[in-house]
């Protein structure tokens, strides 16, 4: 194995499980939707089979504006998995959705859709910054990424 050429390892890909399949299908269409109880109207995240408020199994997927604010962020440094170490230090943001404040999505703040993890200067990242969802392929799954409203 030592003689094998170094292979570029990919970023990890989200697992598309039963509960979250619609989330990823909508993302592939460029829409950020959140699971919502069709009976009582409560949004919930991560997706799950039934509503913790009213026990209903009937769900809808509500379209959001894709707008949010940075609730918190971190800047990981190595040791990291190779694909991430290659781009470290990079920001990882936790975005609170404007349309569903308790739905906070972990994601990458990038200069434009599909740009690298380290494409935004670290000094541009701050709690409270307004961001907008964009979409890019990550290992065959389209994921939301975030761009600054005022870059």
């Amino acid at each position: 194995m030592a003689d094998a050429p170094a292979k570029q390892e990919p970023l990890l890909t989200p697992v598309v499980d039963d509960d979250a399949t619609p989330y990823w299908e909508y993302a592939a269409q460029g829409e950020l939707r959140v699971q919502e109880c069709a009976t009582c109207g409560e949004p919930r995240f991560p997706p799950r089979p039934c509503c913790p408020h009213c026990a209903s199994f009937t769900t809808t997927w509500r379209r959001t504006s894709g707008r949010g604010r940075v609730w918190s962020y971190v800047v990981p440094h190595p040791p990291l998995l190779p694909a991430y170490a290659a781009r470290a230090p990079y920001p990882v943001v936790l975005v609170e959705l404007t349309d569903a404040p308790r739905v906070r999505l972990v994601g990458n703040l990038v200069a434009r859709a599909g740009a690298a993890l380290d494409s935004v200067p670290l000094e541009r990242v701050r709690i409270g910054a307004r961001v907008q969802a964009v979409f890019a392929d990550q290992g065959g799954v389209v994921v939301p990424q975030w761009i600054l409203e005022r870059p």
Binding site: L11, L12, P14, L81, Y84
Partner: peptide, 11 residues
């Protein structure tokens, strides 16, 4: 973890 690790929140 599927909602966090792909984005580099690994450890």
């Amino acid at each position: 973890a599927q909602w966090t690790r792909p984005f580099g929140l690994l450890r």
